[in-house]
């Protein structure tokens, strides 16, 4: 049900959809952008963010994306880099039916404002 309504990968969640679709964890990824006064950039997913990033990619719920965003804010804080907003894009790879031409498709665009309620864009 969550795979049909909430973006959960059919491979996960115990619904026995593995080996049924190319929409697996390996073909999903997140891109993380941070911004603050005089700063706006995409950051790499460091090892300390990998677990939260994988969970958010497999099931991009507000809770999972907020958790990843909080980890990003904590990590940036450790390096004394300011963050006002964390924007997380969740992407998946799709293949055309006959040609198999591969494209990336945006699943979610999520904005987390530090010290504010997360505001999902779509």
């Amino acid at each position: 049900m969550f795979a049909r309504t909430a973006g959960l990968s059919p491979w996960k969640g115990g619904g026995f959809g593995m080996f049924s679709t190319t929409d697996d964890a390996g073909r999903r990824h997140v891109r993380v952008f941070v911004s603050a006064p005089e700063r706006s950039e995409e950051i790499a997913i460091s090892p300390s963010l990998e677990d939260a990033a994988r969970r958010a990619a497999v099931w991009p719920t507000d809770a999972a994306l907020s958790r990843l965003a909080r980890r990003v804010v904590e990590r940036e804080g450790r390096y004394r880099r300011p963050v006002d907003t964390v924007r997380i894009e969740t992407w998946r790879i799709k293949y055309a039916p006959d040609t198999l031409a591969a494209t990336t498709s945006l699943m979610r665009d999520f904005v987390y404002r530090v010290d504010e309620t997360p505001a999902p864009r779509r």
């Binding site: 990968s9 491979w11 996960k12 959809g17 969970r55």
Partner: peptide, 8 residues
């Protein structure tokens, strides 16, 4: 604990 990453 690892939700939702477990295999079926």
């Amino acid at each position: 604990y690892v939700w939702p990453l477990s295999d079926n």
